[in-house]
Design a protein around this nucleic acid. Structure first.
Lengths: 345, 345
DNA sequence: GCACATTATCGAACCGGTTCGATAATTTTT
DNA sequence: AAAAATTATCGAACCGGTTCGATAATGTGC
């Protein structure tokens, strides 16, 4: 039914290889011949099959997007947006994106995404933290890789990161400028590099203002950041004799957990407690009160990663590149003026 | 570098065709031979290449997911979730999902998604409304199709739909049970089949209670349903001399627009006006007040569509199947008791 | 013990592109 | 005018699987 390159060749009275030359703009083809071939292509509505082309060129036209199962199954809006950004940019480069997740129990090369085993991708984007072993296996396959929001320890791979430190710095400065002095930091996921960076940004802003970090107002955890964890951590903090007047939260999920828990305990936001989140997920604008947060351009992360990967695939980029995506403070209504109490007293 | 089927054959001292037979569990292979081949496969870490397999079997292992550009570029959470559902189910069937969008200006077969032109998908899922011409072209390609949340007029294609009528009926009954009598319906997107169905569910519930549909409290529009449209429609309604006490909204975006506009005009929700949305997007739980709505299992829509498509591809399903995905009422705090005023007066 | 079915394996052809060396015609250089 | 370079086209081989008919060995029925 569908036309093949030989059908086109026959109709244009040339060899298949000449048609191929026209299709790929290679070698010498006489102007008239080219016109004849192009006409034949139009007549037969010919379009080369991906599978045939893939076999011989050893390229698939696909790129793989790998995200940790934990991020994915909970349909976390963050990485979904990163994925959409990747997808959007991929389309411009005529690539398709194959999405998959990996579990923490990754053990051997056999657990690699099928698209890698079957050599069905020309490159891979890895979003968020994944087992080190997986990264090793991907690199061993000699497939170009770009990491997003994950700076893998030793190995030096191209990566696209969030400016976590600056974001947390901005959030903290904002609270300081509103007159807060008793500022805490809460969030989980200790091993995640973002956590450290965000905490450092928080700490730097405090130190810059001559304020110490009060350990009583810092609540961390080893488990994943989630709304539930936010509630838990809030309760832990609120039991302390001296309470903070403002909290910098590791991310919006945590912040929303705090919001809920505070609401349940009748703690008024922002009059009794100010809260800043991080990420700016959609729901932030609709919480009550709307959540001040640090906006991360999630789609941009995915887009930049795809551009970097494309450069890598095209062989344009050799050096390891590390890009930081900027952040911006979004002030809504969860941050009010701080009570400057102890000063005068 | 990577092993081919001939390498495996050589090592196991058999013909490539015998290896193929083992790989695909076809024909007769002696037990010992099979064991030898399997050992060779393990030794060489052999995995067949997708591209080679695709060329000869004329299957790609991919399915295409098409969504209207308007739904997609605005990163609408609804179809994103449907996509994730599809993706989740696809993985179970060992398929990958290629995502793309089409624009309303679709004109000819050349505008079809590239994965169709290149014959790089074994089936297609179309989510939401798309140009009729596109559907025609896809059908002409003889590629299995399943529609999601879109009942294409004349043509009779397998589809997975939302139980819109019942959802709107439930929402309206809920308001009636709270004592409301002055209930309106607002929403846009007239040509969308869901709109009609939801309106009918609303109407049926009213009629069942012996209440007429008051045209003054029905505000429709031809443009897309959005937060902005919700605000507009609210203002239009609120200008009327007699105001409704409750509104059934076409979807959550509209409802959130109403919420915003009401808030801006100092109209108290739910004391002065009750609101029910439709879809139950994530943000619903976080609005102020949290939005009562009709929950649609978005992931389920995508999963069922994928299952249906898989049956179609495997040739298990011939007849046109149309599935309705159930809905459930989620009561939050945007719906209060209705004032039974004119009764006694 | 012979005809026939079943089991087991093989090799060649094929899927539909791309690549590359051979060849010929034309143009440029010397 | 011969040699060299450029332009134009072709056909065969190849990518790495699957398919299918041929052939041989073994088992079954009568």
């Amino acid at each position: 039914m569908a036309a093949t390159i030989r059908d086109v060749a026959q109709r244009a009275k040339v060899a298949p290889s000449t048609v191929s030359a026209v299709l790929n703009n290679k070698g010498y083809v006489h102007h008239d011949t080219r016109a004849r071939i192009e006409q034949a292509i139009r007549d037969l509505k010919y379009i080369p099959r991906r599978s045939a082309r893939s076999l011989t060129t050893r390229t698939s036209g696909n790129i793989g997007f790998i995200v940790n199962e934990n991020h994915f199954t909970r349909a976390e809006p963050f990485y979904t947006k990163v994925f959409l950004g990747t997808e959007f940019q991929a389309r411009r480069h005529d690539f398709y994106v194959l999405l998959t997740s990996v579990s923490d129990s990754y053990a051997s090369y056999r657990d690699m995404p099928r698209f890698l085993l079957e050599r069905n991708v020309d490159g891979v984007i890895i979003a968020g933290s994944v087992p080190a072993r997986l990264i090793q296996d991907v690199v061993d396959q000699e497939v170009p890789v770009v990491l997003v929001d994950f700076a893998n320890g030793g190995r030096s791979l191209p990566r696209v990161l969030i400016d976590n430190r600056h974001g947390a710095y901005l959030a903290t400065r904002h609270l300081l400028e509103r007159g807060h002095e008793r500022i805490g930091f809460i969030g989980g996921n200790k091993p995640h590099p973002s956590r450290m960076e965000r905490f450092e940004g928080f700490r730097d802003a405090l130190l810059e203002s001559g304020l110490p970090v009060n350990e009583d107002w810092v609540a961390l955890s080893d488990t994943r950041s989630s709304v539930e964890l936010g509630e838990e951590l809030f309760h832990a903090l609120w039991d302390k004799p001296e309470k903070p007047g403002a909290l910098v939260c590791f991310n919006d999920a945590i912040a929303m957990g705090v919001l809920h828990a505070a609401h349940a305990m009748n703690v008024k936001i922002p009059t009794e407690l100010s809260i800043v989140g991080f990420d700016d997920v959609d729901a932030c604008a609709h919480t009550s009160p709307p959540l001040s947060t640090v906006r991360v351009q999630k789609e941009e992360l995915g887009m930049v990663a795809m551009r970097t990967l494309h450069d890598l695939i095209a062989g344009r980029e050799k050096a390891m590149v590390s890009t930081r995506i900027g952040v911006e403070l979004v002030i809504r209504q969860s941050t009010g003026p701080g009570q400057v109490l102890s000063r005068e007293a």
